[in-house]
């Protein structure tokens, strides 16, 4: 039986842990709201961009001179995985889900004899991959100390990817990130960046009758890198919303666990206290009887 004093110390320490986790939960909830509204605000641009892309790309995909960013290099030897994770932890399995998905994909691709490279976006992912697949990492980027994600950040990543692509460093590029479904669920999602997803015949029905200036090819050359940046930007926003949601859930659980722990410890503490009192009473009574 632990002593009363040690129980009291434990209860106090669990209580202060609980205070920290519940404060973190509040902070995460507030930040979640902010990043959700940021993601919401970014949607019109992405939607219009998508519409334009499919309107122009539908015609250009069959063109033999179509830009490589759209149709790919025709090879699939080298894969680049862009893994998006958060910069901080304490968010349950949020970061390790990405880590696991990427590791799985790397194994699968390597088994097929492909060369795999990883671009780690986010500090946690970088740490994770450094430990396991250091030789595969070709670059990393994090936003430690930044309050909000700006479009320029996504643009810089996209520029980097396009540059590597033009230098022939990879053939196929896939983005792996956590899609924010709800506060409780974030799904690991893989979406192809290069070659850009070619629209199928049925999802751009009213498209083709646009006039295009200056011309399809020139406009696509401008549109494609931009579209890449938009996709990365929305992945970054989803990632940040998902991170805060996941952190909020994790901290909520932690707070609840701490509460249960406190309850159990107080029960033990009270039992020990009562046992002490009882034994003291018995001593007094038996002492009185002996007189």
């Amino acid at each position: 039986m632990p002593s009363l004093k040690s129980l009291r110390i434990r209860i106090n320490s669990v209580k202060s842990t609980q205070k920290i986790t519940s404060a973190m939960k509040m902070v995460a909830a507030a930040k979640l709201r902010r990043s959700q509204s940021q993601a919401e605000a970014a949607r019109p641009y992405a939607r219009r961009m998508g519409q334009m892309m499919s309107a122009i790309a539908a015609g250009a995909a069959s063109n033999p001179n179509a830009p490589e960013l759209l149709v790919g290099t025709g090879k699939d030897r080298t894969h680049l995985l862009v893994a998006v994770t958060a910069d901080r932890g304490l968010a349950g399995a949020f970061n390790s889900n990405i880590g696991r998905a990427v590791r799985f994909k790397v194994r699968e691709l390597q088994a097929q004899g492909k060369v795999v490279k990883i671009l780690a976006v986010g500090r946690k992912g970088n740490d994770y991959f450094r430990r396991e697949m250091n030789d595969l990492i070709v670059g990393h980027k994090n936003f430690v100390g930044k309050k909000t994600i700006e479009f320029a950040d996504a643009e810089a990543i996209a520029e980097n990817i396009v540059k590597m692509f033009r230098e022939g460093q990879f053939d196929i590029c896939t983005l792996v990130f956590n899609r924010f479904v709800s506060v409780m669920t974030q799904n690991v999602t893989e979406s192809p960046l290069i070659p850009a997803a070619t629209p199928t015949a049925n999802d751009n029905a009213p498209a083709a009758d646009y006039e295009v200036e200056p011309d399809d090819g020139t406009l696509l050359d401008r549109l494609l890198p931009r579209n890449l940046a938009v996709q990365i930007y929305s992945a970054l926003l989803e990632n940040s919303a998902g991170f805060y949601a996941s952190q909020m859930t994790a901290m909520d659980n932690a707070t609840r666990n701490a509460g249960e722990m406190i309850k159990k410890l107080s029960l033990n503490y009270n039992r020990a206290r009562q046992a002490n009192i009882t034994s003291e009473l018995i001593e007094i009574i038996s002492g009185a009887e002996a007189v």
Partner: peptide, 9 residues
């Protein structure tokens, strides 16, 4: 007319 930046409408 809609003027849209990547960040918002």
């Amino acid at each position: 007319l809609e003027i849209i930046s990547p960040e918002k409408l």
